[in-house]
Amino acid sequence: MMNIHTAYMGEIEIDPTEILKFEHGIPGFEDEKSFVLLPLEENSIFQILQSTKTVSLAFILTIPYDLVSDYNFNLDEATVEALDINNENEVAVFSIVSLKDTLANSTVNLKAPIVLNTSNKKAKQVILDNENFAIRHKLSFESVKG
């Protein structure tokens, strides 16, 4: 076990095998290669993606399928190869939430989901070439409550 400092939960103990490895970081944060996923609160649809390197760097993630029922995309070969994905059952998909003053004004990035191989913890922000997915998709409050 190891201890890390977090932006919103103080110092916590994590299992190093739970660390998500972003080999090339994510756009804008290319040097941030190591994160942990922390549950926000029990039963919350949101999770925190906390950098293990930079205490103040955290993102809110959510499962896009809970917000947009018809959300789906094909994993491109570059992602399958980069994350050593052998089987679709080991893939988890998250979207980054951009919190604004209210939830109704907050947005979720459907264009560039975080794809995680749950078996080896390799992860990557994948940029989808799909006009239907917005970078700033309004977080529908109704769907959030459900």
Partner: peptide
């Protein structure tokens, strides 16, 4: 740009 603006400033809202 979107990632930069999504860096969490506060989780009070949630």
């Amino acid at each position: 740009d979107s990632n930069t603006e999504a860096v969490v400033g506060s989780i009070e809202l949630l």
